[in-house]
């Protein structure tokens, strides 16, 4: 605390106090996030060694050539982006009506109960939740047992398990609160009198929703989209557990390079390319929606 400091005006100023307060978490983030990310970028330009000398300090772009040249990597990147986009689309579209319901229909004193209920499944063991989706969708799982029991099918459905669809469903479940909460917050901020004004001026309910509610909710939808899209690209537990061989994603390849094949420079190059792909898609998405974000923050 700078209170006892006898120094000049700066030490007593707002800014100085701000820097003092922010420095512990900021220094931690620089050391544990900034420096490591930089190290990965540097490492991606070094040469992989063998035996005791793990990494040879010699500049090369060979890792990028190898990473980009491998058709398997290209397939995994495309599949990862496709899966993440589908998960994001499914999660946000499924989440919007419930966020709307909680914000516009549920009575104010019940709102926090609903939000509480929505967050509970999210805080239960992630691995076990993913595994249970396998149980629900499996060959002799819940869905198949129920359909067989009802006589709707004669033999268990196999196309619902161990594929990209199962990965999408499981991830849409896992990231639901991340999509609901930002949309809910944006909807809560909407001035209700604007909606009445819309209807007073002769717009139908549907048109009021499309022309007033939806544009004003867009910042929340954009936030939800990014907060679901970016982390799902890096998920490798779900594809490994419910994806089967067809559902493996780029994160599984990164894990393989680092923990099994011990090729850190190549793994780093794949990680850097993945970060660039994620960053570019996110930026393009933000640019495409910038008119909704104007005047925000």
């Amino acid at each position: 605390m700078p209170d006892s400091a006898k120094g000049g005006r700066f030490t007593r100023s707002q800014a100085f106090s701000g820097y003092v307060m922010i420095s512990p978490p900021f220094i931690y983030a620089v050391l544990m996030l900034g420096a490591p990310l930089l190290a990965v970028i540097i490492l991606s330009f070094l040469t992989d060694g063998s035996g005791a000398e793990r990494i040879i300090r010699q500049f090369t772009t060979a890792n990028y050539v190898e990473a980009l040249g491998d058709p398997l990597n290209r397939l995994l990147w495309m599949r990862s982006v496709f899966v993440s986009l589908m998960v994001t689309l499914a999660t946000v579209i499924l989440a919007f009506p419930i966020a709307y319901y909680i914000s516009f229909v549920v009575r104010p004193e019940k709102k926090s109960l609903w939000l509480f209920l929505i967050t509970i499944p999210f805080w239960t063991s992630y691995l076990i939740r993913v595994f249970l989706w396998k149980v629900i969708l499996g060959y002799s799982g819940v869905v198949n047992s129920a359909l067989l029991g009802l006589g709707l099918i004669d033999e268990p459905l196999q196309w619902i398990n161990y594929n990209v669809g199962a990965v999408i469903l499981t991830l849409a479940h896992a990231y639901a609160p991340f999509a609901i909460l930002p949309i809910f917050v944006a909807l809560e901020k909407i001035d209700r009198s604007l909606l009445e004004a819309g209807q007073d001026l002769g717009e139908s309910k549907a048109m009021t929703f499309l022309r007033v509610t939806l544009p004003l909710a867009m910042p929340g939808v954009i936030g939800a989209t990014l907060i679901v899209f970016i982390p799902t690209v890096g998920d490798y537990v779900t594809p490994q557990l419910v994806g089967g061989p067809e559902g493996r994603l780029i994160a599984n390849m990164i894990q393989l390079q680092f923990l099994k094949l011990d090729n850190y420079p190549l793994g780093s190059a794949i990680s850097v390319i993945t970060m660039v792909i994620v960053g570019v898609i996110s930026l393009l998405f933000l640019l495409a929606n910038r008119r909704f974000l104007r005047g925000q923050r």
Partner: peptide, 11 residues
């Protein structure tokens, strides 16, 4: 908002 596998790799 970072893919967690990348944070883990970096550390």
């Amino acid at each position: 908002v970072m893919p967690e596998v990348i944070l883990a790799v970096a550390l």
